[in-house]
C-alpha cells in the first residue's frame, strides 16, 4: 500500500507506524549483516576478536590468516574442483534443460502431456539418498566430476520455468524460418534461444550458485581428498577441526607469527564466501525473476 501511495503522490500515513517499521527493517538488516561483519573482522584479526570485550573492529589488524589459508594447497585444489564442476555442470545443465523444454513446449509433440507429467512427478517424489548413491556407484562415476554433474543435471522446477517461458514465444517467429527450410534444431539455436536470453541468465545463475554451494555430493561420491570441492575442504577445517587447521597453526608458530584459531577459521570460511558476497547484489535480480516466473504457474 505504501508503494501505491508513493506512486499516486499521496502522503499522510501514520508517522508512528512508519518510524517503527523503519526501525524494524533496520534491525532486520543489522541482524542479517552482523554475523558476516563479525566473520570479516574476525578473519582480519591477529588476536582473538572478543578478547577484552565486544568490538566492531578487527583486533590487531593483519592479513596473516588469509596468507595461511591461501598458501594451503587443499584450498587451492578445492577451488579448482569447485570451478570445474560449476563450469561443466552449468553449461551441460543449460544445454540439456533447454533442449528438453523446447519439444515439450510444442503442442504437436507426441506424448507431450505424459512426458511432462513424468518430469513434474519427480518434483514431489524421489528415490532418495541411498538408491541415488547405488546408481552413481554402479555407473562407475565415483571419483569423477560426472558424479557431481549428472545426478542433478536437470531439475523439474527449472524445466517447468523454461517450458512456460518458451510457450509464450509467438509461433510466427519459427514459422518464417521453417519456410526457409530450417529444421527444429537450427530454429531452437538460431531463433528461440536468442529470445530466451533473460531466462537463460536466470537458470545459469541458479545452477551455478547451486554448484558453488554443493558439498554433500562431493562428500559421498568423491573419496580422494584431491577431488573434493572447496566447501567440503572448508567444512573439514572449520567444523571437523582436521589436521589442516593444526598444521596451519603450527606453521604460523614456527614462523614466529601469533594467530588465533578463530581468525584462521574465519578466514577459511571467508575465502569460500567472498565470491558469493561479491556477486550476489548483481545476480539477485535474476534470481528474483526466476522465482516470479515459477510462481506464475504455481
Amino acid at each position: 500500500m505504501g508503494i501505491v501511495k508513493a506512486r499516486l503522490g499521496a502522503s499522510g500515513a501514520n508517522p508512528a507506524f512508519n518510524i517503527l517499521n523503519y526501525a524494524f527493517m533496520l534491525l532486520m538488516s543489522v541482524t542479517t549483516l552482523y554475523p558476516f561483519v563479525f566473520l570479516i573482522t574476525s578473519s582480519l584479526s591477529g588476536l582473538d576478536m572478543t578478547l577484552g570485550g565486544f568490538s566492531l573492529l578487527p583486533r590487531d589488524f593483519t592479513f596473516t590468516n588469509y596468507q595461511k589459508v591461501f598458501r594451503n594447497p587443499a584450498i587451492a585444489t578445492g577451488y579448482y574442483n569447485t570451478i570445474l564442476r560449476t563450469a561443466i555442470g552449468t553449461s551441460l545443465s543449460l544445454l540439456v534443460t533447454f533442449c528438453l523444454a523446447w519439444p515439450l513446449a510444442k503442442k504437436a509433440f507426441p506424448g507431450r502431456n505424459a512426458w511432462t507429467a513424468l518430469i513434474v512427478f519427480t518434483m514431489f517424489f524421489s528415490g532418495g539418498m541411498i538408491p541415488a548413491y547405488i546408481l552413481v556407484r554402479q555407473l562407475h562415476l565415483i571419483d569423477t566430476v560426472w558424479a557431481l554433474v549428472l545426478p542433478e543435471l536437470v531439475t523439474a522446477y527449472n524445466f517447468v520455468i523454461v517450458r512456460n517461458y518458451m510457450q509464450t514465444i509467438p509461433s510466427s517467429m519459427e514459422e518464417s524460418a521453417k519456410m526457409d527450410g530450417a529444421n527444429d534444431i537450427v530454429i531452437l539455436f538460431r531463433i528461440i534461444l536468442p529470445v530466451c536470453k533473460p531466462i537463460i541468465a536466470t537458470i545459469a545463475l541458479w545452477v551455478a550458485v547451486w554448484h558453488w554451494n554443493a558439498w554433500f555430493d562431493s562428500m559421498i561420491y568423491v573419496t580422494k581428498a584431491s577431488g573434493q570441492v572447496v566447501q567440503l575442504v572448508m567444512r573439514r577445517i572449520v567444523l571437523e577441526g582436521s589436521d589442516q587447521l593444526t598444521q596451519m597453526m603450527a606453521e604460523a608458530q614456527r614462523q614466529g607469527m601469533v594467530i588465533a584459531p578463530e581468525g584462521l577459521k574465519a578466514a577459511t570460511i571467508m575465502v569460500t564466501t567472498i565470491p558469493i558476497l561479491c556477486v550476489y547484489p548483481f545476480i539477485q535480480k535474476y534470481f528474483v525473476k526466476g522465482v516470479m516466473m515459477g510462481s506464475l504457474k504455481g
Binding site: V96, T97, C99, L100, A101, W102, P103, L104, K106, A108, F109, P110, W115, L118, I119, T122, F125, S126, G127, G128, I130, P131, A132, I134, L135, L150, P151, L153, V154, F159, N183, D184, I185, L188
Partner: peptide, 28 residues
C-alpha cells in the same frame, strides 16, 4: 518430429536414468 525428438532424448534419458532408476531402486 524427428529433430524435436533428437533434442528431447538426452533430457528424457536423464530423467529416466537419474530420477526414475533411483525410484525403482526403492525396491531394496
Amino acid at each position: 518430429n524427428r529433430y524435436l525428438i533428437l533434442l528431447f532424448l538426452p533430457g528424457m534419458l536423464y530423467f529416466l536414468v537419474f530420477r526414475y532408476v533411483p525410484i525403482y531402486g526403492l525396491v531394496i
